[in-house]
Nucleic acid binder design. Structure first.
Lengths: 228, 228
DNA sequence: TTGAAATCGTGTAATCTGGACACCATCATT
DNA sequence: AATGATGGTGTCCAGATTACACGATTTCAA
């Protein structure tokens, strides 16, 4: 992928720039994060966020989307820049500035992560039970989580966790998992419907021995709107 | 400042990394931004945000604070990372990643900007009437302004515009300028006092032929707290 | 000394918003 | 036909937010 046997010289020292992505999804009623096991030093064998070096003619967003695509096989996800980490000693090899992003994968999407070249293994880990992480990646995840939870309050970001069609109970479940508290069913439905952000598909979802649920879809599936 | 007559080589191309800072203050009832006139190409003679290259052993926050200090002579300001801009062609010289910050200078602080080495001129410009700007700096300012206004709603950031002591009318004035709308005096005072974030100094401010106003101070002057 | 000009400081009533709360409906299964 | 399980619905109360007007205190000038 990168040009071999050549060097690039500058009058002043330049840091390396990477992007790292915190990929959230909800699997089996748990908030989960995609991690890769590092195949090479430093922190070999340690779990880390998917990410990699910025190509010199590649936009930051493109780089993050590419890394994400390489690790998960998924594209078109909601992807938002989070923060830039650049402490001088965060990487022992050289000075590395990491522009971090976070992404949301729809619940139960067929996200079969496949190991990329520089990763020994890829897998989902529940947010509540993360393994030890390489570099400052624990700090990055913590910030991403804070941002995600904060955005629940004033944006439609939670819809990015939903499949194309979903039931109100499923949507409520997502909020409950992220906020880590139960919500009142009637108040939840009243509020979410009054916002006018979702609409009925007309279909019914039947699952199990009980009344089937109405299916809804987002009115603007790819957009995250600021509300109230 | 930087090492001369030496080159730094890497196996892969590295972008340059800069920090740029949007410095806000309120001058004469107008929201204003500090700009420098570029002494050198590209965009020579154009106005730009204060900023500069990251030293290789310098943290990002430190770099932003240093640039700010060099341009304004002020330190200890509220400074927060905003966003990282890295479009491939944003600087015609080489690939440059700019980690941007925004800072707030207290109203009518003795901010006498002095031109740094690479700037021909430094000055305040009202937000409503900005000159043409170099690079993507107009976009950066727009984002900083959106962030600032959004933070008014859920944080105590407006207090960073106030001098050590201030009157409630002055504080209300700051909100009115930033929100660009008049506020009700009684409701404003009721709300801001009920939050318990400011306290009376005991002093009075007399200015002009009218009843003097009570002076207040922030309870946690350097901290920006999230409210409600 | 008195009146005018200017800003300071204060309370109440109406409205809106958010949260608490319980029961019947509909399907599958036996 | 009865059981088990989740879907779907409305009202009331409390607290929060908004609208709104006037007397108090100072300086200055006549």
């Amino acid at each position: 992928m990168r040009a071999p046997l050549e060097t690039f010289s500058y009058e002043y020292p330049h840091p390396a720039v990477t992007t790292d992505v915190v990929v959230f999804t909800i699997r089996d009623t748990r908030l989960s994060i995609l991690l890769v096991k590092r195949a090479n030093p430093p922190h070999q064998g340690c779990w880390a966020l998917p990410g990699g070096f910025l190509d010199i003619d590649e936009d930051l967003d493109t780089c993050a989307a590419r890394e994400l695509q390489e690790e998960t096989g998924i594209s078109g996800l909601y992807l938002e820049q989070l923060y830039t980490f650049g402490a001088t000693r965060r990487d022992p090899r050289e000075r590395v500035i990491s522009v971090t992003y976070y992404a949301l994968v729809p619940q139960d999407a067929l996200a079969t992560p496949r190991a990329a070249s520089d990763a020994a293994e890829v897998g989902w880990h529940t947010f509540e039970n993360l393994p030890p992480l390489a570099f400052d990646h624990a700090q990055i995840i913590e910030m991403a989580h804070r941002r995600l939870v904060a955005k629940l309050d004033y944006s439609t970001i939670a819809l990015q966790f939903m499949a194309e069609s979903f039931t109100l109970s499923e949507l409520q479940g997502v909020y409950e998992i992220l906020l880590n508290q139960p919500l009142d069913k009637r108040n939840f439905r009243k509020r979410v419907l009054s916002l006018g952000l979702i609409e009925e598909t007309g279909g019914l979802r039947r699952s199990g021995k009980h009344r089937p649920a109405r299916e809804y879809r987002a009115r603007h599936p790819r957009r995250v709107e600021i509300i109230k």
